[in-house]
Design a protein around this nucleic acid. Structure first.
Lengths: 134, 134
DNA sequence: TAAAAACATACTAATTTAGTATGAATTGTC
DNA sequence: GACAATTCATACTAAATTAGTATGTTTTTA
């Protein structure tokens, strides 16, 4: 039940982009430095964020990344989902049928509600909210 | 952000005890069999649950475990917290000062709220609720 | 006294997480 | 056109965590 470094870094990186109002690309190295994130690890994370259309990459000199959408339209859920792959708290919720009790599970209702509760929260807040201090 | 097997097993084990209305001890081996949990792993889990006063152990032949309190007084939060050690979603919330931003973190408000949201949910439901179908 | 159980602790194997390494492709500047 | 700064791509490795085993001792009932 821990938030991974990857998720934390993804959020912090997106936050750095969101804070910048110049709308010019910011390089991975600058963000890595500002947020104390290992450079090469962050490069990987940006690659994922780009593939999920959360950022746009600008190649070449003076290149970098910018947000794909306005900060008030990017939810925390989207960022975490991209970084983590999914937002399911337990594998049966993503269709892992290897569980003995997959088709008759006394906990499925509970897990489903719990997961929905979490996702509802993460969907509610955007990057803009973090900038405003939550 | 995944629920560990340990947590899942702890919940299932507690649930097995809660379902039994005879109030006589149930052995680890019976619960392991009923819930398809590796026996020795489950023994360890019960040891933890006992230390957290969630179950009482009865040694010797015909021994086993019984719930420490009525099922409607044992919350899911208590069980998960015992199994996991804590319910913090991110290490800074449990006082990990190694983070660069420990004293000035733009995300602390958000994580605190998120964590509270999760714990509130887990505190609300008891074992009895699971038996009733959530 | 034998069997069935909890209780204790150390070890190991598997998996996931976090991070490195290497290099190709793109683009602006001199 | 060369060079530098950047993204983009992919494979590898090291550290940490999770999941599970192994080897006992102690307690209690029949």
């Amino acid at each position: 039940m821990q938030i991974s470094k990857k998720c934390e870094y993804a959020l912090r990186a997106m936050y750095e982009l969101a804070k910048d109002k110049t709308n010019t690309p910011i390089s991975v190295s600058k963000i890595a430095e500002r947020q104390c994130i290992p450079y090469k690890f962050l490069e990987q994370i940006f690659s994922i964020l780009r593939k999920h259309n959360l950022v746009k990459g600008v190649s070449g000199k003076n290149g970098g990344y910018i947000l794909y959408s306005p900060a008030n339209q990017i939810t925390i859920a989207e960022i975490l989902k991209a970084a983590e792959g999914n937002l399911n708290i337990i594998s049966c919720l993503q269709g892992d049928e290897t569980c003995q009790f997959f088709h008759n599970c006394d906990f499925k209702n509970f897990w489903t509600k719990f997961n929905a509760h979490i996702i509802e929260f993460l969907n509610f807040f955007t990057l803009e909210d973090i900038i405003k201090g939550v």
